[in-house]
Amino acid sequence: MLGLKQIHHIAIIASDYAKSKAFYCDTLGFTLQSEFYREARDSWKGDLALNGHYTIELFSFPFPPPRPSRPESCGLRHLAFSVDDIDAAVAHLEGHGVKCEAIRIDPFTNKRFTFFNDPDGLPLELYQQS
Rank of each mutant, 00 (worst) to 15 (best):
N51W: 14
Y37Q: 04
F30N: 02
I86T: 11
F63H: 11
E101Y: 04
F61V: 09
F116P: 04
A89K: 00
E39H: 13
G121V: 04
I56H: 07
D42I: 05
F116L: 10
F30V: 12
D85T: 10
L76T: 11
H96R: 14
K99M: 08
E39D: 09
G29C: 08
A18T: 15
I10L: 06
T109E: 10
K5I: 09
Q33R: 15
G95E: 01
E35W: 06
G75R: 03
S73D: 09
L124Y: 04
S20C: 14
W44F: 14
G46W: 06
R104V: 03
A18M: 15
P66R: 02
A22M: 09
F63S: 05
Y37M: 05
A88D: 15
I56W: 02
H9Y: 04
A80T: 07
P64D: 09
K5M: 04
L124E: 03
G95P: 03
T55I: 02
I10R: 00
T31W: 15
L93F: 03
E39W: 14
L93I: 05
I12V: 13
S43N: 07
F115H: 08
G97V: 07
L4E: 14
P66W: 07
A102T: 09
K5N: 13
F30K: 01
V90Q: 07
T114L: 12
S69H: 13
L126R: 06
P65N: 05
A49T: 13
S43E: 12
L2G: 12
L48S: 08
D120H: 01
Y37S: 00
P65C: 02
Y24H: 03
I7C: 13
P107I: 07
D118Y: 01
D85C: 11
D106R: 00
K21R: 12
D106M: 00
A91G: 11
C25R: 15
Y17W: 12
I105M: 04
D26C: 05
D85I: 07
S20W: 11
S20H: 08
I7T: 15
S130L: 10
D16K: 11
D47K: 14
L28A: 05
D106W: 01
Q128R: 04
Q33A: 07
G95A: 08
D26M: 12
D16T: 10
A80S: 13
F81S: 01
D118C: 07
A89T: 03
A91T: 07
D26G: 03
S130C: 11
K45C: 06
Y127P: 06
H78C: 14
F63C: 04
E101H: 10
F116M: 08
L124R: 11
H8Y: 14
G95M: 02
L32A: 03
Q33P: 00
D47Y: 15
E125S: 08
Y54C: 12
V90K: 08
F108H: 07
F63P: 00
G95R: 06
R70T: 10
W44H: 13
L50D: 12
F23L: 14
S73P: 03
K99I: 10
V98D: 01
S15P: 04
H9D: 12
D87K: 01
F63W: 12
